[in-house]
Amino acid sequence: MILAGGEGRRLRPATHTVPKPLMPVDGIPILHIILLQLRSAGFTHVTLSLGYRAHMIKASFGGNRWAGLDLDFSLEEEPLGTAGPLTLLPPFEDSTLVMNADLLTDIDFADLFTRHKKSQAVATIALAQQNIDIAHGVVEVDEEQQVTDFREKPRMSFLVSGGIYVLEPSLLTLLTPGGRRDMPALLAAAREQGERVEGYVFDGEWCDIGTPEQLERATAAFRADRSRYLSPKEQSQLWAGTGPAEEMVGG
């Protein structure tokens, strides 16, 4: 399931006319890149959770079959967060990958899914390493105000959620049908019940395209090494405007 219903407010004014999932990365809608990656990883059925400008996103695929993938469309009448849209779907029958529609990444989706299936976790979160350079000296003091540490312009490292999850059907019992809920709250509720939630740390490329600056960085990364994200065959099909069995243009 791909969460593609957001308004993309931080990308305005561009998203006044183009929904964020169709925002071009070097000429290719980010959502199309994600779907091709999922197909290459072995996925065959994807549900798109839509909201803002849903009609434009649906029209970009020309139907329920695109690039060898079966597509379903789920419509949010009002924003339900990053976990709430799961309640609009029929109950899961098996482990399901859920992700945001605004990510450029070279994560190995198949390996993530396989690792989860081998675990005892109800959820696995893809984690990316993020580094932040502090422009000033960082000082720590104890209760008596004595300096205990002083580091000049350190680099801080954090593991952040990559916006990609593999979830078990049992998690749906923790959601209220039609209610708003975000993924951190859902997974916190699972952990409170003693359920296992695992992290999958990957050290590849990960770009959120939520702001104009982030979109620019993602575009530069994709342009510099397209083969890192899409195979040469997929690239040629996209640039030619055609796809497998004419499906990329909805034929």
Rank of each mutant, 00 (worst) to 15 (best):
L112A: 10
L112W: 08
F113P: 11
F113G: 09
T114A: 14
R115M: 08
H116G: 07
H116V: 06
H116W: 04
K118G: 01
S119A: 01
Q120G: 13
A121C: 09
A121T: 08
V122E: 12
A123K: 08
I125V: 15
A126S: 14
A126C: 11
L127I: 14
L127T: 14
L127H: 10
L127R: 15
A128G: 13
A128R: 15
Q129G: 11
Q130M: 13
N131M: 12
N131F: 11
N131K: 15
N131D: 15
I132G: 08
I132T: 14
I132Q: 13
A135N: 12
A135G: 10
H136W: 11
G137H: 08
V138M: 10
V138L: 14
V139Y: 13
E140L: 09
E140Y: 05
D142T: 00
D142P: 04
E143M: 08
E143D: 14
Q145L: 15
Q146F: 03
V147C: 02
V147M: 02
V147N: 00
T148V: 06
T148E: 01
D149Y: 01
R151F: 09
K153A: 14
P154K: 12
R155W: 06
R155Y: 03
R155T: 15
M156H: 11
S157T: 15
F158W: 04
V160C: 08
V160H: 11
S161F: 00
S161W: 03
S161G: 15
G162I: 00
G163K: 10
I164G: 11
I164K: 09
I164H: 11
Y165V: 10
L167S: 02
E168R: 08
P169V: 02
P169N: 01
L172R: 14
T173R: 15
T173P: 04
T173N: 09
L175P: 10
L175I: 12
T176I: 13
G178Y: 08
G179M: 07
R180C: 06
R180T: 08
R181H: 06
R181E: 13
D182N: 13
M183F: 04
P184D: 05
P184W: 05
A185G: 07
L186V: 12
L187Y: 07
L187T: 10
L187I: 09
A188M: 13
A188W: 11
A190I: 08
A190F: 06
R191G: 05
R191A: 15
E192R: 11
E195P: 00
R196K: 07
R196P: 00
E198F: 00
G199V: 00
Y200W: 04
V201S: 05
D203P: 02
G204W: 02
G210Y: 03
T211F: 02
P212N: 01
E213N: 04
Q214P: 02
Q214V: 02
R217E: 06
A218H: 01
T219I: 01
A220C: 01
A221D: 12
F222Y: 15
F222R: 11
F222L: 12
F222I: 11
R223F: 09
D225H: 14
R226M: 13
S227L: 10
R228A: 13
Y229D: 04
Y229S: 01
L230A: 01
L230G: 02
S231K: 02
K233H: 05
